[in-house]
């Protein structure tokens, strides 16, 4: 029976899951908004974030013997992913900036195959998992039920990441430069903005966030070379719903998908798998540019 309590708990779980989706999707939309590149390999960066975390904290890992290894990994793993992202942008994606999106999609899809199969060859197909850190591995009482604090932690981290990004884009000079570069590359360049540097920086930030999403997912989901493939599909759904290139759209879209999935479980379980696609269809028919489509990169 569906009670008010079960609805409230489903919404909280939906928001927590939505935050993970947001971290994965926001880099995708950011990179599209600023660089005008659809990076299909973005999900693979998320996968790398989870694997790097595993290898840092598991037995024999670089950080395993240090106290608070998970917390250190939460910083180090995204930085390593960001490094991979920068190399990817500088040497592989930059040459196709001026090509059609089809070329970019083909190229980045090729990258998915290389990265995912590379992971399979290097690390095998065995599933991996990471234990949640003791500090946040407890329950809180939420509406009379024991509820994992890790979910609350996900919500806090996701909200902080969103707030920080919003402040940077809206309130700082760096944010202004990024927005200017995304609106008119040529003009920004003429005004002395180092556009290639802005692009690399944006790719770095997007990769960093995907890596953070993967690191946070490590104690929450089994880790496998193909885990990026499902998250990239969900991420595409989110950025299409929110509006390609829109930062606020990615946030709203991710929470919407998370919460709607949860509520669908309660009310329409048999339709749950198709509901995200129905949402995309409705949004595309009524607002083809997405919910926040008019904004361009933040």
């Amino acid at each position: 029976m569906v009670t008010l309590d079960s609805i409230a708990l489903a919404i909280v779980s939906g928001i927590a899951n939505g935050m993970l989706l947001f971290l994965a999707a926001v880099g995708l939309t950011l990179i599209f908004g600023v660089l005008d590149v659809l990076n299909f390999a973005h999900g693979s960066l998320y996968m790398l974030g989870a694997y790097f975390t595993y290898f840092l904290v598991s037995d024999g890992g670089l950080l395993a013997s240090l106290p608070g290894s998970f917390w250190l990994a939460l910083v180090v793993a995204p930085l390593l992913v960001a490094l991979v992202g920068v190399v990817m942008e500088r040497f592989i994606i930059r040459p196709v900036y001026d090509q059609d999106h089809e070329f970019q999609l083909l190229l980045t899809f090729g990258l998915v195959l290389v990265i995912d199969n590379g992971a399979r060859i290097l690390w095998g197909t065995d599933f991996r998992s990471v234990s949640p850190p003791g500090l946040i591995d407890f329950q809180i009482n939420l509406l009379g039920s024991g509820y994992p604090f890790y979910n609350v932690f996900l919500i806090i981290v996701g909200a902080l990441a969103a707030l920080t990004m919003w402040l940077v884009f809206e309130r700082t000079r760096v944010g202004k430069i990024v927005r200017a570069s995304s609106q008119d590359r040529g003009m920004a360049n003429a005004l002395g903005v180092n556009v290639p540097l802005v692009f690399t920086g944006t790719f770095l930030l997007g990769s960093l966030l995907a890596g953070l999403g993967g690191a946070l997912a490590a104690p929450y989901q089994s880790i496998q070379p193909t885990m990026g493939e499902s998250i990239i599909i969900e991420s595409f759904i989110i950025v299409v719903i929110g509006g390609l290139g829109s930062f606020g759209g990615a946030f709203a879209g991710a929470l919407l998908i998370g919460v709607v999935n949860s509520l669908a479980f309660l009310y329409l379980p048999s339709l749950q798998p198709v509901i995200p696609f129905l949402l995309v269809a409705v949004v595309l028919l009524t607002r083809p540019a997405g919910l926040f489509g008019k904004e361009v990169a933040a």
């Binding site: 024991g146 509820y147 994992p148 890790y150 929450y220 089994s222």
Partner: peptide
């Protein structure tokens, strides 16, 4: 089974 069962157990642990 496999990855799904692992994910399920991870998340179920969070709920005791």
């Amino acid at each position: 089974w496999a990855g799904d069962l692992i994910t399920f157990i991870q998340q179920a642990n969070g709920f005791d």
